[in-house]
Write a protein that binds this DNA or RNA. Structure first.
Lengths: 339, 339
DNA sequence: TAGCACCCTGAAAGCGCTTACTGAAAGCGC
DNA sequence: GCGCTTTCAGTAAGCGCTTTCAGGGTGCTA
């Protein structure tokens, strides 16, 4: 496990350590020596030790990212934006998937802190648990004090850091209007874990708009489940078992809508013949479903890109920066006018 | 950007650096001092500097992973397996998405080498380009010599490292048999970039099995495109434009099959009424397509998990380890018997 | 030719941590 | 009670690199 060190290179090139370092880092060095160092480095297959560099004070080209689940198409898309920016800037991404475990999320932030990553990204809805919030804030505070930058995507309001926020509430409201415009008056909702802020926003925006139009969303019309395909399946099935009395179902995420399609199909119901279905996010696959899903399209890649932009640039102002990205309702064939 | 250091903790606890270090690392220390150190560390919100630790010789808990595109459901699923094992072992994952750029892949391996990651995973088909192969081998050799571990998933044979190999050839052959069993005799194939080894294996296995059954795959029956949804769309459209003369289309990856569905739909053709379609991989979404896609199911999560297992354990033998994971043909409604 | 400014190179001081190694104190048998 | 082992805290030596600082050429001006 012995590595070629800068000292080896310097010796091979018959120069001092300092010169070797300078040559490799593109500082001014006599061309002659410069070439000799580079040749020696290449010959010895020298790879600088990133730890030593970091310790000696060189700035690190890395970024830490914590998300719920890389497997989920939503996060995969956002992560895609992150990776794109990272690749364009030669950054190393330290990615952690917490599998939606709040404890693990904090543990990972701690690890990233230990790595002295200059920036940390938190991707995905926060947890509305005061204890968790306090713990996370405590973890982040010294990091921020130490000059670390933090950016969050679609994250709880109470974390006072730079944020990228999809306009969940407005998007859901707009979707509600569009659905009302199709003549729907009886709705059902597939909701996610109530402690997630995203749920509160989307459900809230949707419900408020209905209320404004004089349409009520009965307590039995909302089913909760995990933000997964199977969660959507279960929630839809539950609604069906309760005796669904709705012409339109709103799934808080597209992934849940996919499960809902399956549940409806298994019951022999057709979309949108028997019931219209709408989702949220516009993950890549939903346009290829049959029927293509009506949804609120979020610029998923941009969520990741903008977060990286926040994380990579110093916040010079005194206030936290917030990038709001609007969603756009995309009407597809999964929603039909009420007969 | 000044951080709390171990020295600060030691001073606060009124012990020596060594004692502080030992206490924090769980070495034997008088309980009294032990508690004092831990209390001081907590009070100061101390986070050890991972670089300093690594430099001083502590083993690193990290793994480097390079894949083509985290956005792709196939890689997302494999990465999911990787992240799961990482989470269970408290490992930090340094993930790079190369966006299918061979140069970038080598550049990332170099970065990972600089990070002194104890293990590197290469996920996704290799490039059959001798120059690239040589460059990659040159990059890997000193890393392996230095005690680094490398594991690859679904990767070129010529890279002499521990590998996890989905049985592409056998899987494609089995699929071909199943399709022949349905009575199909005229086939078309949506193929990927020919320099990818995965393509060679899947196409080769499929074609050989047809040949063995006395069925030929004409040159015009194969369309090449990128391993993406849009690639599948384009390849399918191209086949259609050529005047598709097949009862069954084999898409080398499920993602391409998704695009093929769309292309067929746009031409008003039905699956499997007008043409049967089969894919490969069994990415999560294909069972929710209409009709659900016949495919060769690979244990995607396990690909990632097994690779991690290889990467985390020392190869004690002298030969490289190979874990072969078989695919299983899953017949769904996208393929029908020939009338 | 002497003097001055400049540009490069090399020597050396850390960055924050782990870990021999050293040494003191305590426990044991005889 | 003396010399032995054992236990555990402290001292200090690096890990590999960047960077400051000092010194020695070089080219210029006077």
């Amino acid at each position: 496990m012995s590595h070629v060190t800068l000292e080896d290179v310097a010796r091979a090139a018959d120069v001092s350590l300092a010169t070797a370092s300078r040559a490799l880092n593109g500082r001014r060095v006599t061309p002659h020596l410069h070439d000799r160092v580079l040749a020696a480095a290449a010959r010895l297959a020298y790879t600088p030790n990133a730890h030593a560099r970091a310790l000696a004070g060189a700035s690190r080209r890395s970024v830490g990212v914590v998300c719920h689940d890389v497997t989920d198409p939503y996060f995969a898309a956002v992560a895609g934006g992150v990776m794109r920016v990272a690749a364009d800037n030669d950054l190393l991404v330290m990615l952690a998937s917490t599998f939606r475990d709040p404890e693990r999320e904090i543990a990972y932030v701690s690890m990233l802190r230990a790595e002295r990553a200059p920036a940390i990204l938190l991707i995905g809805s926060g947890f509305e648990d005061p204890r968790w919030e306090r713990a996370m804030a405590a973890e982040l505070a010294p990091y921020l004090d130490g000059g670390g930058r933090v950016a969050v995507v679609s994250r709880h309001r109470t974390l006072k850091v730079d944020s990228v926020l999809p306009e969940n509430r407005a998007g859901a409201a707009e979707l509600a209007r569009a659905l009302l415009g199709l003549g729907h008056r009886r709705f059902a909702v597939l909701s996610g874990p109530p402690e997630l802020t995203t749920v509160a926003d989307r459900l809230g925006g949707f419900r408020d708009e209905l209320t404004a139009a004089g349409v009520a969303l009965g307590p039995g019309a909302v089913a909760e489940a995990a933000f997964t395909r199977d969660g959507g399946y279960r929630a839809m099935t539950e609604l069906l078992d309760r005796g669904l009395d709705a012409t339109c179902v709103f799934a808080c995420t597209d992934v849940m809508a996919v499960g809902a399609y399956a549940a409806l199909r298994d019951r022999g119901l057709s979309v949108p013949g028997d019931v219209s279905v709408a989702g949220f996010d516009d993950i890549p696959v939903v346009r290829d479903l049959t029927p293509p899903l009506t949804t609120v399209a979020l610029p998923l890649h941009r969520l990741g890109e903008e977060a990286m932009n926040l994380a990579l640039t110093e916040n010079t102002g005194r206030r936290r920066r917030i990038v709001r990205l609007p969603g756009e309702v995309v009407m597809r064939a999964s929603t039909a006018p009420v007969a």
